[in-house]
Design a protein around this nucleic acid. Structure first.
Lengths: 123, 123
DNA sequence: CGGACGACTGGCCACCCGGCCAGTTTCGCA
DNA sequence: TGCGAAACTGGCCGGGTGGCCAGTCGTCCG
């Protein structure tokens, strides 16, 4: 059986819920052809289950705010965003201000980080 | 058997490698107590395996730069970073400057975004 | 019709940021 | 023993950022 050219698939677990993690570990431990990763071992794949309570938080952002946010995530300055969207720098600041409020951020960097964490934008 | 209070664990697959996805689907399909998610169904957990070629791009950052980067991702200003690490604002700027170079970023927001994309930091 | 809301614009200003110059100390390695 | 790398500090300054005030315009809704 060791002549198989494909070794066991190694899986690592990243589960918030301890009970679920336990059940999965038990179930998967008895499956031939795969095994769970040893501590520090590099896995072929990871089983993830984040706390679902975090996900439904989609903030109510207007289309324009999403436009500005996307450009912010690209590292664009207010001036560049203004040029890109054909609006004034003042308007960009206006939208950035709303973004900081809605995302509960202290600055544009924080805003992008929060947005990414909440899945509002994709890096 | 249906008296079990815990129904099957539902798993969804997000695997880049088609071969690996296929093997996993086959193996997991025969495990009692869990099943794969139907299209559109909400899963208890997700098995992920992203293309590993993206990961090895670990930029050579010093420990101090990693410290600064982590705080930057939290939205901290240079002043706050300085206080946190017990160094002067000038030194923080020094490290930030190196970070911008190494990460090929135009500003701290861009730097955090690049770092997150490359897996250097976790948001 | 009046009000609310989103998008947009302006001025003003304190503060922050990033880039430039310069310097010190400490450490490991050739 | 010397040399580079990392870490650290300072001054200076132009431009960026964010907060505050104010205002206009169009749309949708009660």
């Amino acid at each position: 059986m060791s002549a198989d050219t494909t070794p066991d698939i190694v899986l690592s677990l990243e589960i918030d819920d301890p009970a679920l993690a336990d059940r999965l570990a038990t179930l998967l431990g008895n499956v031939a052809g795969l095994r769970l990763a040893a501590p520090g071992e590099t896995a072929n794949a990871t089983i993830v289950a984040r706390d679902p309570r975090v996900i439904p938080e989609d903030i109510a952002l207007t289309q324009r705010e999403l436009d500005v946010l996307a450009l912010m995530a690209e590292g664009a300055s207010n001036k560049m965003i203004a040029r890109q969207l054909n609006i004034s720098v003042h308007t960009v600041k206006f939208h950035v201000g709303s973004l900081l409020d809605k995302l509960d951020a202290t600055g544009r960097t924080d805003a992008v980080a929060h947005a990414a964490r909440r899945g509002v934008i994709e890096l």
